[in-house]
Amino acid sequence: MRTAFKLAAGIAMSAIAAVSQAQIKPSVIYDMGGKFDRSFNQASYTGAEAFKKETGISYTDFEITNEGQREQVMLRFAQRGFSPIVVAGFQQAPIVEKIAKQFPDTHFVMVDAVVDLPNVRSVIFKEHEGSFLVGALATMKSQNKAVGFIGGMDIPLIRKFGCGYEQGAKYINKDATVLANMTGTTPSAWNDPTKGSELAKAQFDKGVDVIYAAAGGTGVGVYQAAVDAGNLAIGVDSNQNYLHPGKMLTSMVKRVDLVTKTAFEDELNGKFTAGLQVVGLQEGGVDWALDEYNRDLLTEADIKRMGEIREGIIAGDIKVHNWEDTQSCTY
């Protein structure tokens, strides 16, 4: 009798759990790059898929294709009771601010921008820490002790990448040469592989043999130029090691996938918190990528050294200066 009761109670409990799970309606809104951009937006998709696989809870997503859709779609998501709504890309911030005010009970997750509202979780990454790591590896692997950086558009965010990289490179060898170029001052700089390739070649002529691109689609040209010249390249945002196996030294990954997955899980467990989250190495928000495509480039000693530096940054023994704190790269 008692077992039967327990069993019944158990079934009832799991039924309740199933109901409460079914009530969670997570969603993602991608920015114009599209769901499969191999970079930023795709990372949110990967995270949402991982959540779906683990919990069996499906999510809804939408790819923005014109400006007219932004407000309409976010509003419809909120009206239909989707929560949390993970919004990728700083260009969506003004719309999040508008809609989140109208729906105080809906949870929003703003990636890469800050929206200061009680129902919005804003997530910012410590890109300088991840860039420090790949900068250190770049100098470790550079034969000429000369490493290069190609930024996309010249904005503070990208200077933050470049400054972290420079610090990492000089941490390994104080005399290392670090060359840095920005592709341009307009958004077309995010998608100019030709210019990326030209800038990379110019840096190679000056002795650079490991190059890091934080330039969106421009990076593709940089990597190709590195492969053609027999040099090494470092990818960004998503793990791009697979693009040129054996030629990509590593990638500085920004774990937008984890941010998305965590947000969904927090909602599921009733632990969603609003406010600003700044995620770095310690939180697993940024990291360097080690997989089957670049393992052969590295020795055990390299990997050990990287592990030490990583621990050093997390423990605070190695201080990485954030360009945005002083608007300059003096450290």
């Binding site: 700083f90 260009q91 911030a93 003004p94 001052t185 958004p187 077309s188």
Partner: peptide, 17 residues
């Protein structure tokens, strides 16, 4: 693009609007 990024957005918008 130039006008937006260099002149207009510093007057109170995001970096591209």
């Amino acid at each position: 693009s130039y006008a937006l990024v260099v002149w207009i957005s510093p007057l109170g918008g995001n970096s591209t609007d």
